[in-house]
Design a binder for these strands. Sequence first.
DNA 1: TGCTATTGCTGAATCGATTTAGTGTGAAAC
DNA 2: GTTTCACACTAAATCGATTCAGCAATAGCA
Lengths: 343, 343
Amino acid sequence: MKKKRPSLKDIAEVLNVSTTTVSFVLNGKGEEKKISKELIAKVEAYLKEINYKPNLVARSLRTGSTRVLVFMVEDISNHFFSKVGRLIEDISYKNDYRVLFCSTENDLKRTQDLIHLFHERQVDGFIIVPPLGIEDDIKHLMEHETPVILFDRKIPSLKTDYVVINNFEGAKTSTKHLIDSGYKNIAYITVDLDQGQMQDREAGYRAAIEEAGLNEITLKLPFNTTAVTESREKLKNFIKEHSNIDAIFFATNYLSQSGLKGIHQIDPNLINKLGIISFDDSGFFEMYSPTISAFAQPIEEMAEQLMRIMLKKLKEKDTKPEYLTLKGTLVARESSQPKTTKL
Amino acid sequence: MKKKRPSLKDIAEVLNVSTTTVSFVLNGKGEEKKISKELIAKVEAYLKEINYKPNLVARSLRTGSTRVLVFMVEDISNHFFSKVGRLIEDISYKNDYRVLFCSTENDLKRTQDLIHLFHERQVDGFIIVPPLGIEDDIKHLMEHETPVILFDRKIPSLKTDYVVINNFEGAKTSTKHLIDSGYKNIAYITVDLDQGQMQDREAGYRAAIEEAGLNEITLKLPFNTTAVTESREKLKNFIKEHSNIDAIFFATNYLSQSGLKGIHQIDPNLINKLGIISFDDSGFFEMYSPTISAFAQPIEEMAEQLMRIMLKKLKEKDTKPEYLTLKGTLVARESSQPKTTKL
DNA sequence: TGCTATTGCTGAATCGATTTAGTGTGAAAC
DNA sequence: GTTTCACACTAAATCGATTCAGCAATAGCA
């Protein structure tokens, strides 16, 4: 049979006090509200005895706050996002906030649904990796004074805080690293999304290639999570057609992962002849054989900055937005070492 | 400046009707409640015009239902769990439920916190991969008539529904597959958890080895997410000490992933000499070089069954619990093929 | 003694929806 | 001519917390 959870009213009746008193004690405001020590002790003892848990839905309705934040990224199972998410969760916990995670899959409709769902449930703040076309929905949140921080990508038309990395520098550094390892024909594999961060990475690649007087070799694959196999076939054909390629720079870690599979399918030994580097690190990369080099984003710093800004915004409304562009670091592993000895 | 969200009351005042009427129309009960077609049309038009979204916190307080389910697994970034989660989300969506995902990390305290957090927020149902020691908290949920379904593992003392696979058969089949491929010295790598499913897998391995008249070679690593490196060192030493091993059966996919890294560290070419199979598939396995064989759980079927049972329990209370043990399938890839040609 | 201040507590409004129990009107039934 | 009933709608209670406004009793002070 169903147990009814006791309400403040039930407790007040048992103890012969008012719900107000119980509520004050429950929220630790007993002293402040001049409740006598004896009564505080009595109420606290009873609360503990029955292991009372307040109904948070009722509390939220009254206070207008849920103490819940939402972390909305492209794909929460992606190493980069899940690491940042985990750190954010820890910081939130210490500040008595809970975090809900969800994946947008870069799908506008899905993201809009999620934003509205959570907004209707009165969550207190959003950290979002914004897909293209989401401006209006985010503006809508901002009009209701719900804190929103953009992450990984910025949207120029939105005057709200963001935390991103310097994609241009990162891509340039990575490309240079391949060049320094002796590679001459470096292909750049990216997705055909008009997102700012992707354009910056491409520009970074181009800059390094031009400075070194090499030739650009670029392939843009369709961004479409359902057609992964098709994408990989295109990549395989591209590699076969450009037999002079001696290195590949993948613009994101999921491209790399699919790409490595394609390379393996062409020839299990091909991976040992190519220089490889990926933008964004992945747990997968240090387990692969050979281990894969990557340009890693500063995960801890990003999480700390995101939460610092979020907590600030939750405390005081109408703060000036902060625009943060952080630096990443190159993680050189086996895949980007000179291969001349093996050839 | 802050926009206040309109409430039903505001709308009722503007339209000069009662909040009751607006609520009926909002919930599509207009006809049933004998509201005239004209008035329904007028209210609907206005609701659409201002793009009214009800306050779901208030609705939940009144109805006692949030239309939210929780999917609580060991690690949501694990391929197996994230796949099942995604399918569950789709089915839920079609039935007007939302799903929240979270990771227990097999940590009792963390899991308890999460269960209480969501219970206090009145979520409608739980699908849980239960860590050891969680019985009482789950019993507590059941006493409050909150539907709970166990997944991946069962807890004998709990009379609630579960969906698991036949771990014994799966492990036996996998081991036999290695034997059939000609391997003679098959090591079994597992974790030192007293969980039923792990014991069943080990028993399956043992049964196949005994039937074939081979020798058991078993290594139990400590389950400890923070000491991955240490674990891997133990594994490496184990492999070095047992130089006669020609195949390895990993009891879970995360063990395999760490194990593959260890094998690579010992010698990049070692992987091509060993037969490898893993319990639980992973996206990583078909990308690895060589591709890794695995015993895969029936992901679609599990998601469908879980949601079928959940929806049934949400509709009618006091249903008889269902105990489902499904079958998995062997996915033979490169890593478990005979290696005799290469030696 | 009379006045204000403080202490210690409570009644009732409130958040924004849902839902029960009606209310007033006009037409049909007897 | 009264009763009944369907229709079209509404007032008010309700969910379970928080919180404002206020009350009675005692203390402090002149």
